[in-house]
Design a binder for these strands. Sequence first.
DNA 1: CTGACGATTCACT
DNA 2: GTGAATCGTCAGC
Length: 206
Amino acid sequence: MRKLGIDFYQRANVLQIAKELLGKVLVTNWNGPDGYREETSGRIVEVEAYNGVIDKASHASGGRRTNRNEIMYADGGVAYVYLCYGIHHLFNVVTNKKEAPHAILIRALEPITGIDVMLERTGKKELDNSLTRGPGNVSKALGIFTKHTGQSLLSKTLFIAEDDFVWSKRELATSPRIGVDYAGADAKLPYRFFIKGNPFVSGKPK
DNA sequence: CTGACGATTCACT
DNA sequence: GTGAATCGTCAGC
């Protein structure tokens, strides 16, 4: 496993980065209550790209800049985590350089390590598709909260890595983003990328 | 200070 | 398919 470097995140094409994130491994490694590290990780199978100030679906649409989304304007390679519906913590990867507010929402993972810890965090009894299906569930399973916003993705407790795993091209699918109907024409942009047929991908199958 | 609402999820009809 | 949960954020007064 090789941790992705800063250059991966700071490129200008957020759609390209989003596609490349499919198949990578998202890892958290927080200190557990007993002092031991609790590593949890999963392979990324669904993402959505948010393309800066020109993207009406983005929190940074039109150059909108608030205390909440300020971190989107930072140099790429950090986390943007915010609370949605007062319940769900949604985890995003900030990309591009300073002042270019690009972000990629991680929507689903296929669990790899720490499944027992994830079950504990989510209150589930056994592994099924719902454990890391959907952005709210991803954060819950990996123990990601709004307090982690701004944390470097090159840190020891939160990072993304690659191994030698590769998808076949046929498995890559594209669609409009979910839950962004307020964005007018931009709601139709094909900025959601996922692995066709993977059971952890959110939404109805096909 | 106030009110409206959201890049969602889940239980229920 | 419908609706509730739940609270920080933000625009407007």
